[in-house]
Computed example of a mutant assay.
Amino acid sequence: MKYSINLFGMNVDCDIKIDIDGENFGIELPEESQKALKQYLIRVLPKYGREASKESSFDSLVELALEAEKSLDGHMVEPKLKLPYEFQPEIKEKLIEAAALQGISATQLLIRIIENKYQEIMG
């Protein structure tokens, strides 16, 4: 069953797996969601005093994120960035509308778009 969940302050798409008996419950992240979550954690973890780099494994980043969230009263959040340039009003409205539909800020959506394009090119 496909579902979107919030992991460490980021919404990711996943597959929920329940066995026939209903005794076991788990989630599986598609490769695309894993890559996006890894990039997000590399950006966010230093804000919470955790060392993270591109060489870090996905598992170690998730463990660091779990430790960080356990020490917080709430969830981790992505650092807010002020973009150093302006958009045309029509583009800005579309960006804000698309971000609102996904429940994220326009800056976060723009970062995701750039990351996805980077991954596509550098592949």
Rank of each mutant, 00 (worst) to 15 (best):
M1S: 14
K2E: 07
Y3Q: 13
I5T: 07
N6P: 00
F8N: 04
F8W: 03
F8D: 03
D13A: 11
D15C: 00
I18T: 14
D19A: 07
I20H: 10
D21H: 07
G26V: 01
L29C: 10
P30K: 14
P30A: 15
E32R: 14
Q34P: 00
K35F: 13
K35G: 03
A36K: 11
A36T: 03
K38T: 09
K38L: 12
L41V: 10
L41F: 10
I42Y: 05
R43G: 05
R43I: 03
R43F: 05
R43H: 04
V44S: 08
L45A: 10
P46N: 06
K47P: 00
G49V: 02
G49M: 00
R50M: 15
R50V: 09
E51T: 11
E51Y: 09
S53E: 02
E55I: 01
E55N: 07
S57V: 05
F58N: 02
F58I: 03
D59I: 08
S60E: 14
L61D: 04
V62R: 14
V62G: 05
E63C: 08
A68C: 02
E69Y: 06
S71D: 12
S71W: 08
G74S: 13
G74W: 02
H75L: 14
H75K: 15
M76L: 15
V77W: 03
E78M: 13
K82T: 07
E86K: 11
I91G: 00
L95T: 00
I96V: 13
I96H: 05
E97D: 13
E97T: 12
A98F: 07
A99I: 05
A100M: 08
G103P: 01
S105V: 07
T107G: 14
T107S: 15
T107F: 14
Q108Y: 06
L109S: 06
L110S: 07
R112G: 07
Y118K: 15
E120D: 09
